[in-house]
Design a protein around this nucleic acid. Sequence first.
DNA 1: CCAGTCTAGTTGTCTATACAGCTTCTTGGG
DNA 2: CCCAAGAAGCTGTATAGACAACTAGACTGG
Lengths: 238, 238
Amino acid sequence: MTDFTPHYHRIEQALRALVARSAPHDPLPSEPELAREHGVSRMTARAAVTNLVSAGLAYRSPGRGTFVAVPAAPRRADNLVRFSDEMRRQGRTPSSRIVDAAVRPATAAETARLRLGSGASVVAISRVRLADGVPVAAEWAVFPGALAALLDADLVNGSLHAAVTALGRVPTRGTATLTAAAATRADARLLSLPAGAPLLVERRLILDEGEVPLELTESRYAGSRYHLDVAFGVSSFL
Amino acid sequence: MTDFTPHYHRIEQALRALVARSAPHDPLPSEPELAREHGVSRMTARAAVTNLVSAGLAYRSPGRGTFVAVPAAPRRADNLVRFSDEMRRQGRTPSSRIVDAAVRPATAAETARLRLGSGASVVAISRVRLADGVPVAAEWAVFPGALAALLDADLVNGSLHAAVTALGRVPTRGTATLTAAAATRADARLLSLPAGAPLLVERRLILDEGEVPLELTESRYAGSRYHLDVAFGVSSFL
DNA sequence: CCAGTCTAGTTGTCTATACAGCTTCTTGGG
DNA sequence: CCCAAGAAGCTGTATAGACAACTAGACTGG
């Protein structure tokens, strides 16, 4: 069995594994070392390291060498981090309560957004997300009907995204809209809030590896109980 | 005057200018063409193109050539884009109204967040941001007192960030917190909304190139008139 | 007109080599 | 022990060249 993977790619993978078991600022093998070790030219080894540096996993210091980079700052908006991880990051204990989980006919909007065929069905799961036992968010997640097996997953203690991935669909990227709205009667009931209380509303569409729509979700967070931490760069627009 | 700029960097800058005046999928010069045109080796030209591809401005197609990339999806949370640009992106006409602009003593919180000396002053600028003549956001921006010259800038028609940069401080990166809150009486007046209406609230701290705090701003957007478009990746957390 | 082949051109991967400037370590002399 | 110089090693930039695989267009023959 001949391995057709380019040399620089194999070296990059080995370096990524090394970074994963190292601490920030640990030295990585030098380019000449990597070249000797892997039997390639220095320029080939250098290409592998350049990819690592571009990916933010390492940094180079002229004359000194290459080192493991400091992990990026909080990038909630850059990566969709699970509600439970976000709560833990804020020092809070996350939990969930399932309100409803069923297969039903897709609405017209869902059909369009999830690019379903007409007359298709969806898996609709609504949950309340809690932090320290207090309701923080009400969430309506909709998946294509083909993922009906989600209903068999442990939706309370397990990860919904893990369940989706186990069915062969890997959430890869998404777009979202954030705004503020007043709590409806339904929100108020789910979140134990007065109707009209301010909610941070997120509507997101998640695509899988093949750019196929995978999940359409609206999350409505109690403004008084939840905030989103974001880090960003500033464009040079001058 | 000798130019010490590396060849690949000069070629990259020329390509960036070309991308800026091109449409998505327009062909860019091939590597051999660039090499001939700039009198460098093909590998040097290739390094310039590789940087462009890494930056998402171009894509390569084996056998066919290199092309201008489709502009990235909305990345509001990834880059601090000016309110006016964001409004234009949403097809709306932005404008601003200055409510107040003055130097005043810093509060304790401002002193801590902007890392000022005790007894220091700040430049406080409050504005209403409008889209199509309708108030969309109320904004309170605070800068270190050393930037008092901001008060001399054109705050209505000019860019506040351009003014800051002209004073030698380049906004580089920041962190923000997003949540929802009910409009106060002051908000209501500024935004022509009922008190209690839901607002999307953003509090951000912006640092300059030297990681020195530069701007502390709270923006309060009318939920019914503004939304934030975000694109993100999904972490592999399984 | 259509299909197949050839040519010219592209990107992708790689080698070997060279020099510049920087950093760190070692050695020798005071 | 301290300092300076040199050596060894690093990253940064660049060259010239090679071959593989792919694409698009032109040309030729049926």
